[in-house]
């Protein structure tokens, strides 16, 4: 199967912190690939690099055969029309209704008639189960609902690739279940390729075809969900099981506790 995304030897620094050192991953077409890891490892940064919002310091990122960071503005924008992205905070336009939000990319990038746009918008909303909510304003939606609307907007132009940034965080069990089902169904029904960035282990592993675990700027482990659960590499196990202590320590670095309680500094409080 061909790869829709190919990342080779990626290096990216922010200030003096190395976010990524020599990261390589592939996303085959039509599959759901999950990128997981503890908070702050730069998972969102990876999505921004794939989408061309950031430039890598070294290495290459190929999306649909094109090297993203060498594209000029108009070529980058043409590529982005094939990508749908769902941000953690939804990113719905607060001054437009649900209908107008989903219609936005259609109005901007196509010359379709109003009736066609209406049909497409209603179909997309139907796919996420929110066709009846079309005249509400984003402020009137619950968190889960606004994510679903953002999803409908992300697939409005029928992209080839959809990227989800922490889709399950902060959701109640029902919304989570809805989203999980939606992501899998849409991927299969529309022939999409999906990249999910998340740290919700059970939900993500239930739908992913392949998983990469990032930690400390490198790929600590990769494989199918089954392989990872049964045979996890060292650092990965703590993450997948949710263990409080392991390679990522429980205690923030500090001096010995005895010294703290009885030493010089404690003397000041006597």
């Amino acid at each position: 199967m061909t790869d829709l995304i190919k990342i080779n030897a990626l290096y990216f620094n922010r200030g003096d912190r190395a976010i990524f050192s020599d990261v390589a991953l592939n996303v085959p077409k039509g599959s759901i690939v999950a990128i997981m890891g503890p908070s702050g490892t730069g998972k969102t940064t990876l999505l921004q690099l794939i989408g061309g919002q950031l430039r890598p310091d070294r290495g290459e990122i190929l999306v649909a055969g094109e090297c993203v960071h060498t594209l000029n503005r108009s070529a980058l924008y043409r590529l982005r029309r094939k990508i749908g992205m769902l941000f953690q905070s939804g990113g719905l336009f607060t001054h437009l209704t649900v209908f107008e939000n989903v219609a936005f990319p259609l109005r901007e990038h196509t010359q379709l008639s109003e009736s066609m746009i209406r049909s497409i918008v209603l179909l997309k909303l139907q796919m996420v189960g929110l066709r009846g909510a079309r005249d509400l304003m984003p402020a009137e939606l619950s968190g889960g609902m606004s994510r679903r609307v953002a999803l409908a907007r992300a697939i409005a132009l029928d992209p080839e690739l959809v990227m989800y940034d922490e889709p399950f965080s902060g959701q109640d069990p029902i919304s989570m279940g809805v989203l999980v089902r939606l992501i899998r169904t849409l991927n299969d029904a529309l022939g999409l390729t999906t990249v999910i960035v998340s740290h919700d282990v059970p939900e993500t592993l239930s739908i992913a075809d392949y998983v990469y675990v990032l930690s400390g700027g490198k790929i600590e482990g990769q494989g199918t969900p089954d392989a990872l659960m049964h045979n996890p590499p060292a650092g990965v196990n703590q993450f997948l099981q949710g263990l409080p202590d392991g390679p990522v320590p429980f205690d923030y670095p500090a001096v010995d506790i005895l010294k703290d309680l009885t030493g010089e500094e404690a003397g000041h409080y006597a």
Binding site: G51, Y77, F87, G90, T94, H109
Partner: peptide, 18 residues
């Protein structure tokens, strides 16, 4: 500023609208 904070501007960028 609020549009930046709620990812509306990033969403727009990713939808290929400047």
């Amino acid at each position: 500023g609020l549009m930046q904070a709620t990812a509306q501007i990033s969403s727009m960028e990713m939808m290929a609208v400047d």
